[in-house]
Nucleic acid binder design. Structure first.
Lengths: 219, 219
DNA sequence: TAACATCTTAACAGTTCCTTAAGGTTTTTG
DNA sequence: CAAAAACCTTAAGGAACTGTTAAGATGTTA
Protein backbone atom coordinates (compact mmCIF):
# COMPACT_ATOMS: atom_id res chain seq x y z
CA UNK A 1 0.00 0.00 0.00
CA UNK A 2 1.50 3.27 -1.06
CA UNK A 3 0.59 6.34 0.89
CA UNK A 4 1.56 9.90 0.02
CA UNK A 5 2.07 12.26 2.94
CA UNK A 6 1.76 15.87 1.83
CA UNK A 7 2.78 17.91 4.83
CA UNK A 8 5.35 20.62 5.55
CA UNK A 9 5.58 20.17 9.28
CA UNK A 10 8.58 17.93 9.70
CA UNK A 11 7.65 16.74 13.14
CA UNK A 12 4.33 15.47 11.84
CA UNK A 13 5.93 13.97 8.76
CA UNK A 14 8.39 12.04 10.86
CA UNK A 15 5.72 10.84 13.22
CA UNK A 16 3.52 9.67 10.35
CA UNK A 17 6.41 8.02 8.59
CA UNK A 18 7.41 6.06 11.64
CA UNK A 19 3.89 4.89 12.33
CA UNK A 20 2.87 4.18 8.76
CA UNK A 21 6.04 2.31 7.88
CA UNK A 22 5.57 0.19 10.93
CA UNK A 23 2.06 -0.52 9.73
CA UNK A 24 3.49 -1.68 6.46
CA UNK A 25 2.84 1.23 4.15
CA UNK A 26 5.27 2.45 1.57
CA UNK A 27 5.50 6.08 2.53
CA UNK A 28 6.38 8.84 0.10
CA UNK A 29 6.60 12.33 1.55
CA UNK A 30 6.07 15.70 -0.11
CA UNK A 31 6.60 19.05 1.55
CA UNK A 32 4.38 20.93 -0.88
CA UNK A 33 1.23 20.21 -2.85
CA UNK A 34 3.02 21.23 -6.04
CA UNK A 35 5.62 18.51 -5.63
CA UNK A 36 2.96 15.95 -4.93
CA UNK A 37 0.86 16.89 -7.94
CA UNK A 38 3.92 16.92 -10.13
CA UNK A 39 4.80 13.41 -8.99
CA UNK A 40 1.30 12.25 -9.79
CA UNK A 41 0.70 13.95 -13.11
CA UNK A 42 4.17 14.58 -14.49
CA UNK A 43 5.79 11.36 -13.38
CA UNK A 44 2.74 9.13 -13.15
CA UNK A 45 3.29 7.96 -9.61
CA UNK A 46 0.36 6.16 -8.10
CA UNK A 47 -0.82 6.03 -4.52
CA UNK A 48 -3.44 4.03 -2.70
CA UNK A 49 -4.25 6.83 -0.31
CA UNK A 50 -3.17 10.43 0.26
CA UNK A 51 -2.78 12.22 3.57
CA UNK A 52 -3.05 15.87 2.68
CA UNK A 53 -2.44 18.82 4.96
CA UNK A 54 -4.64 21.85 4.40
CA UNK A 55 -2.15 24.48 5.49
CA UNK A 56 0.74 24.27 3.09
CA UNK A 57 3.18 26.80 1.68
CA UNK A 58 2.05 27.66 -1.83
CA UNK A 59 -0.93 25.70 -3.07
CA UNK A 60 -3.12 24.66 -0.13
CA UNK A 61 -4.59 21.25 0.47
CA UNK A 62 -8.14 22.14 -0.49
CA UNK A 63 -7.12 23.46 -3.87
CA UNK A 64 -4.72 20.58 -4.40
CA UNK A 65 -7.56 18.17 -3.77
CA UNK A 66 -9.81 19.99 -6.22
CA UNK A 67 -7.05 19.81 -8.80
CA UNK A 68 -6.73 16.09 -8.23
CA UNK A 69 -10.43 15.53 -8.73
CA UNK A 70 -10.62 17.80 -11.76
CA UNK A 71 -7.96 15.74 -13.38
CA UNK A 72 -9.99 12.63 -12.78
CA UNK A 73 -8.10 11.06 -9.91
CA UNK A 74 -10.24 9.19 -7.42
CA UNK A 75 -7.51 8.27 -4.97
CA UNK A 76 -8.82 8.38 -1.38
CA UNK A 77 -7.81 11.62 0.32
CA UNK A 78 -7.60 12.11 4.07
CA UNK A 79 -7.43 15.79 4.85
CA UNK A 80 -5.41 17.10 7.80
CA UNK A 81 -5.76 20.50 9.32
CA UNK A 82 -5.05 22.51 12.41
CA UNK A 83 -8.34 24.34 12.02
CA UNK A 84 -11.32 22.75 13.62
CA UNK A 85 -13.99 25.07 12.35
CA UNK A 86 -16.93 23.47 10.68
CA UNK A 87 -16.44 25.84 7.80
CA UNK A 88 -13.09 24.34 6.92
CA UNK A 89 -14.45 20.87 7.27
CA UNK A 90 -17.10 21.67 4.72
CA UNK A 91 -14.58 23.26 2.38
CA UNK A 92 -12.35 20.26 2.68
CA UNK A 93 -15.03 17.74 1.93
CA UNK A 94 -16.44 19.96 -0.80
CA UNK A 95 -13.10 19.88 -2.53
CA UNK A 96 -13.38 16.14 -2.89
CA UNK A 97 -11.64 14.83 0.20
CA UNK A 98 -13.00 11.56 1.56
CA UNK A 99 -12.35 12.17 5.21
CA UNK A 100 -11.12 14.82 7.52
CA UNK A 101 -9.00 14.92 10.65
CA UNK A 102 -8.08 17.88 12.82
CA UNK A 103 -4.69 18.35 14.41
CA UNK A 104 -3.77 17.30 16.94
CA UNK A 105 -5.04 13.82 16.18
CA UNK A 106 -4.49 10.49 17.79
CA UNK A 107 -2.47 7.94 15.89
CA UNK A 108 -5.10 5.35 16.59
CA UNK A 109 -7.80 7.48 15.04
CA UNK A 110 -5.67 8.25 12.00
CA UNK A 111 -5.02 4.57 11.38
CA UNK A 112 -8.64 3.70 11.91
CA UNK A 113 -9.74 6.25 9.35
CA UNK A 114 -7.05 5.22 6.89
CA UNK A 115 -8.18 1.63 7.11
CA UNK A 116 -11.78 2.69 6.70
CA UNK A 117 -10.87 4.62 3.55
CA UNK A 118 -8.96 1.72 2.07
CA UNK A 119 -11.68 -0.74 2.96
CA UNK A 120 -14.23 1.48 1.29
CA UNK A 121 -12.17 1.28 -1.88
CA UNK A 122 -11.90 -2.43 -1.64
CA UNK A 123 -8.32 -2.32 -0.52
CA UNK A 124 -6.99 -3.87 2.62
CA UNK A 125 -4.32 -2.27 4.73
CA UNK A 126 -2.03 -4.97 5.93
CA UNK A 127 0.89 -4.90 8.23
CA UNK A 128 3.79 -5.80 6.04
CA UNK A 129 6.07 -6.01 9.00
CA UNK A 130 5.17 -9.64 9.37
CA UNK A 131 7.18 -10.32 6.24
CA UNK A 132 10.25 -8.60 7.63
CA UNK A 133 10.34 -6.39 4.57
CA UNK A 134 9.73 -2.67 4.44
CA UNK A 135 9.85 -0.47 1.37
CA UNK A 136 10.17 3.28 1.69
CA UNK A 137 11.23 5.97 -0.70
CA UNK A 138 14.62 5.92 0.96
CA UNK A 139 15.34 2.26 0.51
CA UNK A 140 14.37 -1.31 1.21
CA UNK A 141 14.80 -2.94 4.58
CA UNK A 142 14.92 -6.70 4.98
CA UNK A 143 15.02 -7.84 8.57
CA UNK A 144 16.21 -4.37 9.49
CA UNK A 145 19.12 -4.39 7.08
CA UNK A 146 19.18 -2.14 4.05
CA UNK A 147 19.30 -3.92 0.73
CA UNK A 148 20.12 -2.25 -2.54
CA UNK A 149 17.63 -3.16 -5.24
CA UNK A 150 17.37 -2.07 -8.84
CA UNK A 151 14.22 -0.49 -10.21
CA UNK A 152 12.68 -3.67 -11.59
CA UNK A 153 13.59 -5.64 -8.50
CA UNK A 154 11.99 -3.09 -6.24
CA UNK A 155 8.77 -3.01 -8.25
CA UNK A 156 8.64 -6.77 -8.39
CA UNK A 157 9.10 -6.99 -4.64
CA UNK A 158 6.45 -4.35 -4.07
CA UNK A 159 3.84 -6.26 -6.03
CA UNK A 160 4.71 -9.51 -4.27
CA UNK A 161 4.64 -7.72 -0.94
CA UNK A 162 1.20 -6.31 -1.58
CA UNK A 163 -0.02 -9.81 -2.25
CA UNK A 164 2.14 -11.61 0.24
CA UNK A 165 0.80 -15.00 1.21
CA UNK A 166 -1.07 -15.07 -2.07
CA UNK A 167 0.12 -16.40 -5.37
CA UNK A 168 0.77 -13.80 -8.03
CA UNK A 169 0.66 -15.08 -11.58
CA UNK A 170 3.40 -14.28 -14.05
CA UNK A 171 0.87 -12.55 -16.21
CA UNK A 172 -0.04 -10.26 -13.35
CA UNK A 173 3.59 -9.54 -12.60
CA UNK A 174 4.29 -8.76 -16.22
CA UNK A 175 1.32 -6.46 -16.30
CA UNK A 176 2.11 -4.65 -13.07
CA UNK A 177 5.87 -4.46 -13.22
CA UNK A 178 6.44 -4.35 -16.94
CA UNK A 179 3.26 -2.41 -17.77
CA UNK A 180 2.47 -4.42 -20.85
CA UNK A 181 5.88 -3.99 -22.47
CA UNK A 182 6.56 -6.69 -25.00
CA UNK A 183 9.04 -8.80 -23.09
CA UNK A 184 9.59 -12.48 -22.76
CA UNK A 185 7.90 -14.28 -19.91
CA UNK A 186 11.29 -15.47 -18.76
CA UNK A 187 12.38 -12.04 -17.52
CA UNK A 188 10.27 -12.70 -14.47
CA UNK A 189 12.26 -15.81 -13.60
CA UNK A 190 15.51 -13.95 -13.92
CA UNK A 191 14.44 -11.10 -11.72
CA UNK A 192 12.97 -13.46 -9.16
CA UNK A 193 16.33 -15.18 -9.07
CA UNK A 194 18.10 -11.88 -8.48
CA UNK A 195 15.62 -10.94 -5.78
CA UNK A 196 16.14 -14.27 -4.07
CA UNK A 197 19.87 -13.71 -4.10
CA UNK A 198 19.38 -10.37 -2.39
CA UNK A 199 16.55 -10.91 0.10
CA UNK A 200 16.93 -14.60 0.78
CA UNK A 201 14.58 -17.48 0.10
CA UNK A 202 11.29 -15.75 0.77
CA UNK A 203 9.82 -16.22 -2.66
CA UNK A 204 8.11 -19.49 -3.25
CA UNK A 205 7.52 -20.92 -6.69
CA UNK A 206 3.99 -22.10 -7.33
CA UNK A 207 4.41 -24.43 -10.21
CA UNK A 208 2.44 -23.59 -13.29
CA UNK A 209 1.05 -20.41 -11.78
CA UNK A 210 3.51 -17.89 -10.46
CA UNK A 211 5.21 -16.80 -7.27
CA UNK A 212 4.30 -16.14 -3.69
CA UNK A 213 6.08 -14.14 -1.02
CA UNK A 214 6.06 -16.23 2.14
CA UNK A 215 4.82 -14.63 5.32
CA UNK A 216 7.19 -14.34 8.18
CA UNK A 217 6.09 -14.42 11.77
CA UNK A 218 2.35 -14.87 12.38
CA UNK A 219 0.28 -11.84 13.31
CA UNK B 1 18.15 25.76 8.52
CA UNK B 2 19.23 29.19 7.35
CA UNK B 3 19.34 31.98 9.86
CA UNK B 4 19.98 35.64 9.11
CA UNK B 5 21.74 37.63 11.81
CA UNK B 6 21.15 41.36 11.40
CA UNK B 7 23.40 43.02 13.94
CA UNK B 8 26.12 45.67 13.86
CA UNK B 9 27.89 44.75 17.08
CA UNK B 10 30.72 42.54 15.91
CA UNK B 11 31.28 40.84 19.24
CA UNK B 12 27.68 39.72 19.30
CA UNK B 13 27.79 38.66 15.66
CA UNK B 14 30.82 36.51 16.27
CA UNK B 15 29.33 34.96 19.37
CA UNK B 16 26.09 34.14 17.56
CA UNK B 17 27.90 32.77 14.56
CA UNK B 18 30.04 30.45 16.63
CA UNK B 19 27.08 29.13 18.58
CA UNK B 20 24.64 28.84 15.71
CA UNK B 21 27.06 27.17 13.35
CA UNK B 22 27.84 24.65 16.03
CA UNK B 23 24.11 24.01 16.31
CA UNK B 24 23.99 23.31 12.63
CA UNK B 25 22.52 26.50 11.22
CA UNK B 26 23.67 28.10 8.05
CA UNK B 27 24.43 31.61 9.22
CA UNK B 28 24.30 34.69 7.04
CA UNK B 29 25.22 37.98 8.67
CA UNK B 30 24.20 41.52 7.82
CA UNK B 31 25.52 44.66 9.49
CA UNK B 32 22.54 46.78 8.46
CA UNK B 33 18.84 46.24 7.93
CA UNK B 34 19.13 47.67 4.44
CA UNK B 35 21.58 45.00 3.38
CA UNK B 36 19.39 42.30 4.82
CA UNK B 37 16.23 43.56 3.14
CA UNK B 38 18.07 43.89 -0.14
CA UNK B 39 19.22 40.28 0.11
CA UNK B 40 15.66 39.17 0.73
CA UNK B 41 13.77 41.23 -1.79
CA UNK B 42 16.34 42.06 -4.45
CA UNK B 43 18.17 38.76 -4.50
CA UNK B 44 15.38 36.51 -3.27
CA UNK B 45 17.38 34.92 -0.48
CA UNK B 46 15.30 32.88 1.89
CA UNK B 47 15.75 32.29 5.58
CA UNK B 48 14.10 30.02 8.07
CA UNK B 49 14.48 32.49 10.88
CA UNK B 50 15.83 36.02 11.39
CA UNK B 51 17.63 37.41 14.42
CA UNK B 52 17.12 41.13 14.17
CA UNK B 53 18.74 43.79 16.35
CA UNK B 54 16.60 46.83 17.14
CA UNK B 55 19.41 49.36 17.39
CA UNK B 56 21.00 49.53 14.00
CA UNK B 57 22.68 52.26 11.98
CA UNK B 58 20.21 53.52 9.39
CA UNK B 59 16.91 51.66 9.32
CA UNK B 60 16.16 50.23 12.76
CA UNK B 61 14.95 46.74 13.53
CA UNK B 62 11.36 47.63 14.28
CA UNK B 63 10.91 49.39 10.96
CA UNK B 64 12.77 46.65 9.12
CA UNK B 65 10.37 44.12 10.58
CA UNK B 66 7.36 46.19 9.56
CA UNK B 67 8.79 46.42 6.08
CA UNK B 68 9.19 42.65 5.98
CA UNK B 69 5.61 42.07 7.02
CA UNK B 70 4.24 44.69 4.67
CA UNK B 71 5.90 42.92 1.83
CA UNK B 72 4.20 39.72 2.85
CA UNK B 73 7.08 37.83 4.43
CA UNK B 74 6.13 35.62 7.33
CA UNK B 75 9.61 34.46 8.26
CA UNK B 76 9.94 34.08 12.05
CA UNK B 77 11.69 37.10 13.56
CA UNK B 78 13.47 37.12 16.89
CA UNK B 79 14.08 40.69 17.98
CA UNK B 80 17.19 41.64 19.94
CA UNK B 81 17.66 44.83 21.90
CA UNK B 82 19.69 46.41 24.64
CA UNK B 83 16.63 48.25 25.91
CA UNK B 84 14.55 46.45 28.41
CA UNK B 85 11.69 48.84 28.67
CA UNK B 86 8.25 47.38 28.19
CA UNK B 87 7.55 50.08 25.68
CA UNK B 88 10.14 48.77 23.28
CA UNK B 89 8.97 45.26 23.74
CA UNK B 90 5.50 46.25 22.70
CA UNK B 91 6.77 48.20 19.72
CA UNK B 92 8.82 45.23 18.64
CA UNK B 93 6.00 42.74 18.78
CA UNK B 94 3.63 45.27 17.22
CA UNK B 95 5.91 45.48 14.25
CA UNK B 96 5.38 41.84 13.56
CA UNK B 97 8.24 40.18 15.43
CA UNK B 98 7.50 36.75 16.84
CA UNK B 99 9.64 36.93 19.92
CA UNK B 100 11.84 39.28 21.79
CA UNK B 101 15.09 39.02 23.74
CA UNK B 102 16.93 41.70 25.70
CA UNK B 103 20.68 42.02 25.78
CA UNK B 104 22.53 40.67 27.54
CA UNK B 105 20.94 37.30 26.93
CA UNK B 106 21.98 33.79 27.74
CA UNK B 107 22.93 31.55 24.85
CA UNK B 108 20.73 28.86 26.25
CA UNK B 109 17.71 31.12 26.24
CA UNK B 110 18.42 32.30 22.74
CA UNK B 111 18.60 28.77 21.44
CA UNK B 112 15.48 27.75 23.33
CA UNK B 113 13.54 30.60 21.80
CA UNK B 114 14.89 29.94 18.35
CA UNK B 115 13.84 26.35 18.57
CA UNK B 116 10.42 27.36 19.83
CA UNK B 117 10.01 29.70 16.87
CA UNK B 118 11.00 27.03 14.39
CA UNK B 119 8.82 24.46 16.05
CA UNK B 120 5.88 26.79 15.88
CA UNK B 121 6.43 27.01 12.14
CA UNK B 122 6.66 23.31 11.87
CA UNK B 123 10.36 23.33 11.27
CA UNK B 124 12.87 21.34 13.21
CA UNK B 125 16.29 22.69 13.96
CA UNK B 126 18.66 19.95 13.05
CA UNK B 127 22.27 19.74 13.85
CA UNK B 128 23.90 19.47 10.48
CA UNK B 129 27.19 18.77 12.17
CA UNK B 130 26.42 15.07 11.93
CA UNK B 131 27.28 15.24 8.27
CA UNK B 132 30.57 16.96 8.98
CA UNK B 133 29.53 19.78 6.71
CA UNK B 134 28.61 23.32 7.69
CA UNK B 135 27.61 26.07 5.29
CA UNK B 136 27.90 29.73 6.19
CA UNK B 137 28.06 32.85 4.10
CA UNK B 138 31.79 32.95 4.64
CA UNK B 139 32.48 29.53 3.32
CA UNK B 140 31.92 25.84 3.68
CA UNK B 141 33.48 23.73 6.38
CA UNK B 142 34.04 20.05 5.76
CA UNK B 143 35.31 18.21 8.79
CA UNK B 144 36.44 21.53 10.17
CA UNK B 145 38.46 22.48 7.12
CA UNK B 146 37.38 25.33 4.91
CA UNK B 147 36.62 24.48 1.31
CA UNK B 148 36.16 26.95 -1.52
CA UNK B 149 33.02 26.27 -3.50
CA UNK B 150 31.52 28.09 -6.46
CA UNK B 151 27.94 29.34 -6.40
CA UNK B 152 26.39 26.34 -8.10
CA UNK B 153 28.41 23.95 -6.02
CA UNK B 154 27.34 25.61 -2.81
CA UNK B 155 23.66 25.58 -3.79
CA UNK B 156 23.88 21.98 -4.87
CA UNK B 157 25.49 21.04 -1.59
CA UNK B 158 22.89 22.99 0.36
CA UNK B 159 19.99 21.14 -1.26
CA UNK B 160 21.69 17.79 -0.72
CA UNK B 161 22.45 18.74 2.87
CA UNK B 162 18.85 19.67 3.56
CA UNK B 163 17.85 16.25 2.32
CA UNK B 164 20.83 14.34 3.61
CA UNK B 165 20.22 10.66 3.93
CA UNK B 166 17.46 10.92 1.34
CA UNK B 167 17.71 10.58 -2.39
CA UNK B 168 17.26 13.81 -4.30
CA UNK B 169 16.24 13.33 -7.91
CA UNK B 170 18.00 15.11 -10.71
CA UNK B 171 14.76 16.82 -11.58
CA UNK B 172 14.49 18.23 -8.10
CA UNK B 173 18.10 19.39 -8.15
CA UNK B 174 17.57 21.08 -11.50
CA UNK B 175 14.49 22.76 -10.13
CA UNK B 176 16.04 23.92 -6.89
CA UNK B 177 19.54 24.80 -7.99
CA UNK B 178 18.92 25.84 -11.58
CA UNK B 179 15.42 27.24 -10.97
CA UNK B 180 13.98 25.78 -14.12
CA UNK B 181 16.62 27.22 -16.46
CA UNK B 182 16.81 25.31 -19.69
CA UNK B 183 19.98 23.36 -19.10
CA UNK B 184 21.01 19.85 -19.90
CA UNK B 185 20.49 17.20 -17.26
CA UNK B 186 24.16 16.44 -17.39
CA UNK B 187 25.21 19.67 -15.70
CA UNK B 188 24.19 18.01 -12.49
CA UNK B 189 26.64 15.18 -13.03
CA UNK B 190 29.45 17.57 -13.76
CA UNK B 191 28.83 19.63 -10.66
CA UNK B 192 28.48 16.54 -8.54
CA UNK B 193 31.86 15.48 -9.81
CA UNK B 194 33.37 18.83 -8.86
CA UNK B 195 31.74 18.69 -5.45
CA UNK B 196 33.08 15.20 -4.89
CA UNK B 197 36.55 16.38 -5.76
CA UNK B 198 36.27 19.12 -3.17
CA UNK B 199 34.41 17.55 -0.27
CA UNK B 200 35.32 13.92 -0.70
CA UNK B 201 33.17 10.90 -1.41
CA UNK B 202 30.09 11.83 0.53
CA UNK B 203 27.69 11.87 -2.36
CA UNK B 204 26.19 8.57 -3.34
CA UNK B 205 24.77 7.89 -6.77
CA UNK B 206 21.34 6.30 -6.86
CA UNK B 207 21.16 4.83 -10.31
CA UNK B 208 18.34 6.10 -12.45
CA UNK B 209 17.14 8.47 -9.77
CA UNK B 210 19.60 10.98 -8.42
CA UNK B 211 22.04 11.57 -5.62
CA UNK B 212 22.16 11.24 -1.86
CA UNK B 213 24.43 12.87 0.69
CA UNK B 214 25.51 10.17 3.07
CA UNK B 215 24.95 10.79 6.74
CA UNK B 216 27.90 10.97 9.02
CA UNK B 217 27.54 10.06 12.63
CA UNK B 218 24.11 8.82 13.74
CA UNK B 219 21.66 11.19 15.37
C1' DT C 1 42.56 44.40 -22.44
C1' DA C 2 44.51 40.47 -20.26
C1' DA C 3 44.14 37.14 -16.75
C1' DC C 4 41.09 34.59 -14.21
C1' DA C 5 37.06 32.08 -12.55
C1' DT C 6 32.84 29.84 -13.50
C1' DC C 7 29.43 27.52 -16.07
C1' DT C 8 27.65 24.71 -19.77
C1' DT C 9 27.99 21.57 -23.40
C1' DA C 10 29.87 17.82 -25.90
C1' DA C 11 32.32 13.71 -26.48
C1' DC C 12 34.00 9.45 -25.06
C1' DA C 13 34.73 6.08 -21.49
C1' DG C 14 32.95 3.34 -17.88
C1' DT C 15 29.29 1.32 -15.25
C1' DT C 16 24.91 -0.58 -14.16
C1' DC C 17 20.84 -2.65 -15.47
C1' DC C 18 17.68 -5.29 -18.39
C1' DT C 19 16.62 -8.74 -21.62
C1' DT C 20 17.43 -12.68 -24.21
C1' DA C 21 19.29 -17.03 -25.08
C1' DA C 22 21.01 -21.47 -23.95
C1' DG C 23 21.83 -25.44 -21.23
C1' DG C 24 20.72 -27.69 -16.87
C1' DT C 25 17.32 -29.12 -13.27
C1' DT C 26 12.91 -30.22 -11.39
C1' DT C 27 8.15 -31.42 -11.82
C1' DT C 28 4.36 -33.19 -14.23
C1' DT C 29 2.21 -36.08 -17.55
C1' DG C 30 1.53 -40.01 -20.64
C1' DC D 1 10.11 -44.54 -16.70
C1' DA D 2 10.60 -41.31 -20.41
C1' DA D 3 9.11 -37.31 -22.59
C1' DA D 4 7.32 -32.82 -22.05
C1' DA D 5 6.67 -28.70 -19.67
C1' DA D 6 7.99 -25.36 -16.44
C1' DC D 7 11.52 -23.45 -13.95
C1' DC D 8 16.62 -22.30 -12.54
C1' DT D 9 20.97 -20.54 -13.55
C1' DT D 10 24.38 -18.25 -16.00
C1' DA D 11 26.32 -15.31 -19.24
C1' DA D 12 26.49 -12.25 -23.18
C1' DG D 13 24.96 -8.14 -25.65
C1' DG D 14 22.98 -3.95 -25.73
C1' DA D 15 20.50 -0.01 -23.75
C1' DA D 16 20.47 3.49 -20.48
C1' DC D 17 22.76 6.03 -17.30
C1' DT D 18 26.87 8.13 -15.03
C1' DG D 19 31.94 9.58 -14.81
C1' DT D 20 35.41 12.23 -16.64
C1' DT D 21 37.66 15.51 -19.31
C1' DA D 22 38.25 19.41 -22.10
C1' DA D 23 36.91 23.25 -24.86
C1' DG D 24 34.23 27.25 -25.61
C1' DA D 25 31.16 30.88 -23.70
C1' DT D 26 30.41 34.17 -20.45
C1' DG D 27 31.27 37.07 -16.90
C1' DT D 28 34.65 39.30 -13.49
C1' DT D 29 38.68 41.42 -11.86
C1' DA D 30 43.14 43.58 -12.07
Amino acid sequence: MRVAVVEDDLSIVNLLKRVLIKEGFSVREFSTAEKFLSAVFDYGEEFDVVILDVMLPGLNGVDACKFLRNRGSDVPVLMLTALSEEDDKVKGLDSGADDYLTKPFSIRELLARLRALLRRRGKVALNLETSGIVITDVGVLVDGKEVKLTGRERELLRVLLENRGKVVSKEELLQKVWKGEAVSKRVVDVHVKHLRDKIGDRIETVWGVGYRLVEGAPE
